[in-house]
Structure formats: C-alpha cells, structure tokens
Design a protein around this nucleic acid. Structure first.
Lengths: 196, 196
DNA sequence: GTCTATACGCTGATAGAC
DNA sequence: GTCTATCAGCGTATAGAC
C-alpha cells in the first residue's frame, strides 16, 4: 500500500481502506475526536475487522505512523542518491516537502503536524526517527565539507529546515493560500544568503 | 493572575489554582488525556467550582489561552517599545522566547506546542493572533526600511523566526538538553548572515 | 459560591454466530 | 476473516444540599 507514491486507486484491500480512512479522519478532527465507529463507517468495514487487523485505535495510528515514516525515509534516500552536495540535498528535500504538502496534504499533516506523543505510547519523538536523523547527517556532512558554516548539528539543522517546516505548518493550517512551491526560491535564498 | 511575570506564589484564588493545575496537566498529558476530575484533584477544588467558574473543560482551556495570549502580547509590546531597529527587535523577541522556554516551560508549551484547533472551537489559529500579527508587522516595517530583504511577509517572517521556533519545539520535546539561550548568538547569525 | 452524589451518553473493546 | 450485538467503564455535566 504505497501512500507517498500512489498514483491510481485500485480496489484496495481491507487494511488499506482502514488506514486511509483513519488518516483522513485523524487529520481532519484529531486522533482523540475520532472514534473507532467513525473509522469503521468511513472505511466500510466492520468493527471486528478493525480489531482483527490492528488490535484497536492506537494500533491503527501506530501502523499508519510506521508506514508513512518508511515512505518518508525512502524519499530522503532517493534525494540523497541523486544529489552530490549537501546544500543541494537540503534544497531538494525542501522542494519535495513543499510538493508533498500540496499533493499529499494529509500525509504531511499526519507526519509533521501532529503531536504523536499524545496517542502513540512508547514511540520516540519524530525528530529522533531515521528520516530526521538522515537530515541531520546531511547537515553534518555539509559542515565537515565546509559547504555549511559550522555549529551545533541540532541548531544548524533547525536553522536550515525550520523556516520551511514553519511554512508547511502555516499552509496546513490554511493560513497561506498559495501553493508552497511558488515560495521555494525565496526560502532557499533566505537560508543560504541570510535575511539582511 | 500574572503568569508570565509571576515571581512569588501567594495563596492564590480559586480560579487561578484551577488554571494553573489545568495548564500543568494539559501540557504534560495533552488536553484530551486530562479529565475534569484530574483538574479538580490537582487544584484542590470541587467539580462544582470548576463548572461555576469556567463552565467546563473547554472553558478552562479557552480562558487559559486568552490569558496567556494577552501576556505574550505584552511581552512583544515591551520589546517593541525598547527597541529601534526591526532586526534588533526580532533578535530580542527570540531572546525572550528562549528565556521563557527555560523559565516558564509550560506556558511556552501550551502556547507554541499545542494544536489548539483540536479543542478550542471557534478560536482563530495562533498565527492569526495579535502577537503573531505584531511580529509580521515588525518584519514588514523592516522590509520597508531596507533593514530586511524584501519578500512575502509570511515567508520572510517564517524564515526569520522558523529556526528559533523549531528549536523551542525540540527543547520542549526534551530532544535538546542544553538551555536555549546558549544557542542565541548562533541562531541570530544563521538568520542574518545565512548558513553558507 | 462550594461541595457531593448521581445521571447518562459515548467509546473502546469483546463475544460469538456465520 | 468478517460481521452484529452487547458490555463495561469513563468522563462530562447536572441537581440539589449546605
């Protein structure tokens, strides 16, 4: 069930229908404002099936989280493999994130705009997940290669991606009404050239 | 009941005890994982008092939100009044936010690290509140005065404050274990000089 | 204004037929 | 594996004494 790369919608298996319904509902109303009955209704399956497949509401969220995190990681990997310089790598990641915010809004919202800690017990925070670790590694490599000014890895990574992530939040909140890719060049310039 | 400026803890009135208890619980467990009974217990008041004062759980959250937003606004105003240039103004706001993250953690967490939309019905998003509007105005003034490179106000504001806000999130999540003020100079340099 | 006791709807979860 | 019917507990909110 490839979410990030899905292009056509075939008659999907049951567990995929459940995950898709849950994703949409969780993003629209928030995890705690969605009942298992809501998911069951929207996915056109019975409650029994949900418990058979995922063991409960939190099980759905956990499966969703792991799945989308994997696809996020694959996106990062693909960018790394097709890019040489660290700076260009950061830029392309931002470009991809901006695109995905437009084309796969709910996935971005669930990954970047959700307090997972409030309903995913035992999961480490998102910023400790492998895709984010990969982003910090890119920055660290860039600092080692003198492409990026030296500093604390967490701080430098936050400074590079923070503006873009903030824009994604604003866009997901409906505050910005233009597609993010239109701001790409401006954001990139701000990062590398500074705001002065 | 001055939260942001509170220095001593006197015998507080009932509604203040309720708000303080709710703030701590909401931040620690999340709004939906806290029951009115939890607040009642922690505040040492009865359920009846809570409903008399705030009308319910959402009423508590709404009162808390409005109150803290006001104090946030006062902080911004005080920075504006003591600063001349727009750039210096942005810097001082970041400095204050970093300080508050250390000294008034729960207030920062409730304001900046919470999805208010999931439980505050009818409230506009935080970024439309007056303090955030004031921050955008500072940036707009800076662009008009050629202190800040020109561009879309939302994008430029996100680029200036995005890195700092991201660091605050990471600090609140317990990912960064050093006090944020120690990173202030580095963050400021990244913003104005760029990362290259 | 404050408190205790209570009502009642909703939700997560299970049992058991098919 | 899928479904329906049902349960048990929690959590909001109210009623009414003090």
């Amino acid at each position: 069930m490839p979410y990030l790369n899905k292009t056509v919608s075939l008659p999907e298996p049951v567990d995929c229908r459940i995950l898709t319904a849950a994703l949409d509902l969780f993003v629209e109303h928030g995890f705690h404002n969605v009942s298992v009955h809501d998911v069951q209704k929207q996915a056109n399956v019975s409650i029994g099936s949900i418990y058979n497949h995922f063991g409960g509401k939190e099980g759905i969220a956990k499966a969703l989280y792991k799945h989308l995190l994997n696809e996020f990681q694959e996106m990062i990997d693909s960018v790394i493999s097709e890019t040489r310089s660290s700076r260009e790598c950061c830029n392309r990641i931002i470009a991809r994130l901006f695109e995905y915010t437009e084309t796969r809004r709910n996935i971005m919202a669930f990954l970047l705009h959700t307090k997972h800690r409030e309903f995913l017990s035992g999961e480490p925070p998102l910023c400790h997940s492998s895709p984010f670790a990969a982003m910090r590694k890119i920055v660290a490599d860039g600092m080692a290669a003198n492409e990026i000014r030296s500093g604390d890895p967490w701080v430098m990574t936050a400074s590079i991606f923070g503006g873009a992530i903030r824009l994604i939040h604003l866009r997901l909140d409906g505050v910005i009404d233009q597609p993010l890719p239109g701001y790409y060049q401006q954001v990139i310039d701000n990062i590398w050239k500074g705001m002065a």
